[in-house]
Amino acid sequence: MADDAYNYAYLDEQTKRMIRRAILKAVAVPGYQVPFGGREMPLPYGWGTGGIQVTAAIIGRDDTLKVIDQGADDTTNAVSIRRFFAKVAEVATTTRTDEATVIQTRHRVPETPLREGQILVFQVPIPEPLRMLEPRETETRTLHALSEYGVMQVSLYESIARHGRISKGYNYPVMVNGRYIMSPSPIPKFDNPKLDRSPALQLYGAGREKRIYAVPPYTPVKSLDFDDHPFEIETWEQCCALCGSKESFLDEMIVDDDGKHLFVCSDTDYCERRRTLPEAAE
């Protein structure tokens, strides 16, 4: 039940309209960060307020919502956000990727391929991919306007010069539709290929920084690289200790005082489906 003191989905209608207009402009200019009048939410900044505002502006009673953090449905913040929407938006929730119409995520893209009609909402801490190279918003805005991305190329090249490879593991920058360099949010680079020409709509919300951006379905998303140093994703020698998957992103756990390691799927729904449905493990 929605609390009568608050509007449906918490935000007032005027705020929703403002966010909805920003979302449409974000879809029209893929990868460009649209400034929006972000509101204080009842959860702290940095804990998903951007994603929550985007979800609150799009969600309706017909939706089925899935919320994940680190790929898992049962991490505390995912539970907290899912509980929030179940309460304020009277919405059905699920842990199943294939059943969800809206998936709000922090730090992962589900392993189960997404389909047309699904919306993936990313929580974004720092939306500006150039921020760690140039702290000034006025500067980075100009760099995007001029499509002047040399500073990023130099940074990646320096990494190769020092380490022999691009040493960025997560939040690995991408080029969207050949025009804007975009932060995919702090997902592991393992997930970057899933963003490319995805049939689902990707919406990115940064609450504290007050930016919304989007990647429409079937839009080219290229991870930055060099001809002689092509983009590559993480691999493990181990497989998931629970479902045996060799294809999924693995979390590492330290299981005893001697520092023994164990690897399990980060995507809990994917892992559970493989364990309960043998055919899914094919």
Partner: peptide
């Protein structure tokens, strides 16, 4: 908040 996915990417690198 948990950051173990990011940390795992860093560990691998």
């Amino acid at each position: 908040l948990p950051h173990y996915v990011d940390f795992q990417s860093e560990l691998v690198v």
